[in-house]
Amino acid sequence: MTSTLLKFFGPTPLSRRKALWGMALVAPNVLGLFFFFGVPVLMAFITSFREWNAIKPARYVGFDNFERLATDPKFEQALTNTFKLIGLTVPIEMVLALGIAVLLNQPLRGRNWLRMAYFLPVVTSTVAASVVWTSIFQPRYGILSDLLAPVGLGETKWLVDPGLVLIPVGVVAIWQRLGFDMVLFLAGLQAIPGELYEAALIDGANRWQRFRNVTLPMLSPTTFLVVVLAIINGFQIFDQVYVMTLRTVPGGVGGSATTLTYFLYRRAFTNSEFGYASAVALVLFLLVLGVTVVQLVMQRYWVYYESDEG
């Protein structure tokens, strides 16, 4: 028994000692992850099969919570809103981030300043940013209404109109995410060997052809990573909705801005339906997992890994 355990840590005393040191060093992080992430996730899983209002003892109800989800129009609305937001934000976010990364990869004056400027929103508190954006979108006195007045869109009730409210939420989500995606793209761009561009130049490729046939394929592993992260992030949009609709109708008029995470929050903390909310969390988890697996399968049709060619 002892010898098996010893072998697990390493074949020689020296390597065992090294392994122990390594484990000691990662232990705080792993334990933290286990207690503050692993345990709550497990509890949410168990709670999703229970009826629990946080005060009275929980009661096992089998799949009742999930059956209720299947027929709850408010859940369906939250699901639709979440997919709408992902559809709205992810493509725009990708194109903008790539464009900015390509521009800031050029030898521009002051590009370090520009890179920093684009990255600032990432490290800005979402709540603070959302508060500022809320005032920008204010229909009468907001900056946006002045800018849009010439095209007849002044005094648009962005945060109240059920048909429009996802737009400001999406804009803030994109704005906050752009810098992060840009940094990933920049790193990807800088890893592309210069000789490929030289070879393309010699072959007479113009600027667009070089971008289309060299940059895009070489960048595809990065693009894949960015898409996966952006979609996962899209599923988790919460703060923007919370803050930007707080002062008018929380969650939007008729739930028009309610995303899955916001729906979950309201069910848990307003209606005290922690079991039902946990079921939403579980569905959210399965959705993210499913979408990510599909992307992993699809990637072989469009992602180009140089090392595969040897």
Partner: peptide
């Protein structure tokens, strides 16, 4: 209207 005052709360 609510949008003019910037919010639906009594404080607004």
């Amino acid at each position: 209207g609510v949008s003019i005052m910037g919010g639906a709360s009594a404080d607004d």
